[in-house]
Design a protein around this nucleic acid. Structure first.
Length: 493
DNA sequence: TCCGCTAACACATTTGAACCGC
DNA sequence: AGCGGTTCAAATGTGTTAGCGG
């Protein structure tokens, strides 16, 4: 079934050739880009927290990276401020960046080894949420899992020395609620709870079929709820105060909410007059230091404006930690709180000190295990041995499969969504065994070192074809099955 | 009526092309 | 012609708001 038969023709689907991924995924058709099945990257990323959060994850085929590989959340204190209130992320049809942005630093890599950095965002639980006056509470079951996508850092692949020399920013990740998104943004459901994850994979290039290990990290502070409009006014205020793009809405600016509404209604510039009338519940907190160094190409230059203090050097690595259901909050588990910063002062102003995202959920709503907190990311295992007894009771990716993909009334076609479904079912079978599956890894004899069919080995050149916007390297966002297919030999290897 | 979503809007910031002088 | 600095418009990233639809 051709795409046009599956989906009504929509103007937004008309993307100029330069913006499409045709150049890179020559063996994939549009339907897969739009309706990519559940994620299965070539690296077989662990399942989402909803299915064993904080527990050893299902194995990827490669051995885990050495234990001294550590990842640290750079702007952790800012994240903690938002987490204390209950982080909300706006998602829009056209895609919205995350704020705070995901910024990490890595140590322990081999300087000369090549690594690929990936990020994805997975649901925390199976609930939909609803804002009730001053807190979030579950409101029914979650929507069916969407075609999840993986964001590959645009610098990938790069030697370990590159990743370790400066903080790594994932600020170009965009979130959308458009299930037909063609721009490669990460598709999420509104009013759901998500957890970003970061993955380090040792590989020669993004499309390499030979890879030498992986480690995955999560930071509890980065958990967020997706919304199409902010529900918690404290979040709105904190975003306005900390995001430079929202300066226009700060109380001490000329365009605060009240002013604007007044001006719109009266068409009068009465900023000073209104300022005394209403200061709002949250007095403007001066940013004593820049909280946001502005967009950068890919990674951030420490000396060039890294705004937030680096984590203390003694921050310990937190390997797999069993979930602690009795723990009241992640903050309580935090062994190494950062010193008070300007940001935390803002938090105090907002009366959110000591609170966590979970505090904004009714106790009965905390149906997921507590996340182990640490200054470094909690690492998933990528064990090479089977770990079916790791606590995940069923194939994790089974739930990721959108129910809408299951109806198959058309004969399978090599390049339509149904075929992707079949491909994914194979993967599910393999992953469900939790063993060192061979699904994503070809037999050694089948490995090829050649470039992508019709493309040179130089991955950067491939990027130019791949990226929606040529020029800069905004990062790669595409669905796991696309990569999976490449690695499983079904693509253009 | 309520709630969630979307598009339009105004504003701040970033980016890059155009321009100028040396 | 090449280089470096400046200017300015376009692009992009924000939150707000009205209106729509289920």
């Amino acid at each position: 079934m051709a795409l046009t038969q599956v989906l009504p023709k929509q103007p937004e689907l008309e993307v100029s050739p330069g913006q499409r991924y045709d150049g890179i995924f020559t063996a994939l058709d549009t339907s897969q880009r739009i309706l990519g099945a559940a994620p299965l990257t070539p690296f077989s990323l662990p399942p989402g927290p909803a299915l064993g959060f904080g527990q050893p994850q299902s194995p990827c085929e490669a051995p885990r990276l050495p234990g001294n590989v550590k990842m640290t959340l750079e702007n952790r204190d800012l994240w903690k401020q938002f987490h204390a209130i209950g982080t909300e992320m706006i998602i829009t049809k056209s895609g919205r960046r995350m704020f705070p942005q995901c910024k990490v630093s890595i140590t322990g890599l081999e300087p000369d080894g090549k690594y690929v950095l990936l990020a994805d965002i997975v649901p925390v639980d199976n609930s939909r949420y609803k804002w009730q006056e001053d807190h979030w509470e579950p409101s029914g079951r979650a929507e069916p899992r969407l075609p999840e996508r993986v964001y590959i850092h645009p610098d990938s692949p790069a030697p370990g020395s590159h990743w370790m020399k400066q903080p790594i920013s994932f600020h170009k990740i965009k979130l959308t609620n458009n299930t037909l998104d063609q721009m490669g943004h990460i598709i999420l459901h509104s009013m759901h709870r998500y957890q970003p994850r970061f993955h380090i994979v040792r590989a020669q290039d993004v499309f390499s079929r030979r890879w030498g290990g992986c480690s995955s990290f999560t930071f509890p502070e980065t958990m967020f709820l997706t919304v199409t409009a902010y529900q918690n006014e404290k979040i709105t205020q904190l975003k306005i105060q900390t995001n430079p793009f929202a300066k226009g809405f700060r109380e001490n600016g000329l365009k605060n909410k009240r002013d604007r509404s007044v001006r719109v209604k009266r068409k009068l510039p009465s900023a000073e007059q209104e300022e005394e009338e209403e200061q709002g519940p949250y007095p403007p907190a001066e940013c004593k230091r820049p909280l946001y160094s502005g967009p950068c190409d890919s990674t951030l230059d420490i000396g060039g404006g890294l705004a937030l203090p680096l984590p203390s050097p003694d921050c310990s690595f937190h390997p797999i930690t069993p979930p602690n259901p009795t723990s009241p909050s992640t903050e309580a588990n935090d062994p190494s709180p950062l010193p008070i910063t300007a940001n935390q002062e803002q938090a105090a102003n907002l009366e959110m000190s000591g609170q966590t995202t979970d505090n904004f959920l009714r106790p009965e709503s905390q149906a997921y295990p507590e996340i182990p907190a640490g200054q470094d990311g909690s690492m998933y295992t990528c064990q090479s041995e089977s770990s079916s007894a790791a606590g995940v009771s069923h194939p994790p990716n089974l739930q990721r499969f959108p129910a809408t993909f299951q109806a198959s009334q058309e004969p399978p076609h090599p390049y339509n969504s149904q075929s992707e479904y079949r491909l994914y079912r194979q993967d599910m079978t393999c992953i469900g065994d939790y063993g060192p599956s061979s699904c994503a890894i070809p037999a050694p004899g089948r490995e090829e070192e050649g470039g992508i069919r019709g493309y040179p080995k130089n991955s950067d050149l491939r990027f130019q074809h791949f990226l929606p916007n040529s020029g800069t390297k905004p990062g790669l966002q595409f669905s796991g099955p696309q990569i999976q297919r490449l690695y499983s030999g079904g693509g253009w290897m």
